[in-house]
């Protein structure tokens, strides 16, 4: 990631500039941020403040919520948007602070692996939730 500037009046831009990835990423941070205002602040209000807050959360509470496709869809959207928004933000942070190429490479590999893991696990849990799962012990 070296930052190359054009020579003044360079006839053509260097080919690396042809990728619009960073622009797309910049735009995604803003669009997903708008959606996350509703999704995450709504989630926090419901979980922590309304109707007894965190003290009324237990398995039966989650079972009640996930019996509704509305909250399943809410949680799935929140999972994907927050994980990709946060992961993409962390990619920027790693780019800013990692000094050696090898450090940067391995930190990003760890980041991407953790993102795939969390997205897969979180989606699996929503899609396969079973309110009749037996109690252990």
């Amino acid at each position: 990631m070296t930052l190359a500037l054009d020579k003044p009046r360079a006839p053509r831009r260097p080919s690396a500039r042809r990728s619009n990835f960073e622009l797309a990423s910049w735009l995604f941070m803003r669009i997903s941020g708008l959606a996350l205002i509703v999704l995450v602040l709504g989630h926090l209000l419901i979980m922590n403040i309304l109707d007894g807050g965190v003290h009324r959360i237990n398995f039966a509470f989650v079972a009640g919520r996930w019996s509704s496709p509305f909250w399943q869809f809410w949680d799935l959207s929140m999972l994907w948007l927050a994980e990709i928004h946060g992961g993409n933000g962390l990619r920027t942070v790693i780019n800013d602070y990692a000094r050696k190429d090898a450090t940067r490479f391995w930190l990003k590999i760890m980041l991407y692996v953790s993102m795939v893991l969390i997205l897969a696990l979180g989606s699996y849990v929503i899609f396969t939730f079973d309110a009749t799962i037996p109690t252990t012990n």
């Binding site: 237990n58 946060g86 933000g89 969390i118 696990l121 849990v125 799962i133």
Partner: peptide, 24 residues
């Protein structure tokens, strides 16, 4: 932002215990 991202990691893991058992 970074703090919330790390919380989300732990939070998805703890929520996943609904697939283990109600008491977990």
């Amino acid at each position: 932002g970074v703090l919330t991202f790390f919380f989300l990691f732990a939070h998805v893991l703890d929520t996943a215990l609904v697939r283990v058992s109600p008491n977990a």
